[in-house]
């Protein structure tokens, strides 16, 4: 099954917009969760959980590569591709 990156990106941005209560124009793949949106550790924990639930994946607690919205999208795409293989 091919993973559609655009769809995943849209869904990730939807979640970030809703949970962080920011306007959509503030959220692009380059947007950094902590530095640009002011997320704290609890926000990050909640976002990770939302991503896990939305995409039915598991994100390890020590996953440190996810800083921006784009990082999250790439991580999810990779996970889904591996799961599809």
């Amino acid at each position: 099954m091919a993973v559609k990156k655009e769809e995943i990106q849209k869904k990730v941005i939807d979640i970030v917009v809703e949970r962080m209560e920011v306007t959509r124009d503030r959220v692009t793949p380059e947007t950094r969760l902590i530095e640009d949106l002011g997320a704290d550790s609890l926000d990050i924990a909640e976002l990770v959980m939302e991503f896990e639930e939305a995409f039915d994946i598991s994100i390890p607690d020590d996953e440190e590569g996810v800083r921006s919205v784009g990082d999250a999208v790439d991580f999810i795409v990779k996970q889904l591709e591996e799961a599809g293989e």
């Binding site: 609890l42 924990a45 909640e46 959980m49 896990e52 639930e53 598991s58």
Partner: peptide, 13 residues
Amino acid sequence: AKGPSRVSPFLIP
């Protein structure tokens, strides 16, 4: 319903 991994990080605070 969904297991321990779905319990909110906001529960305790």
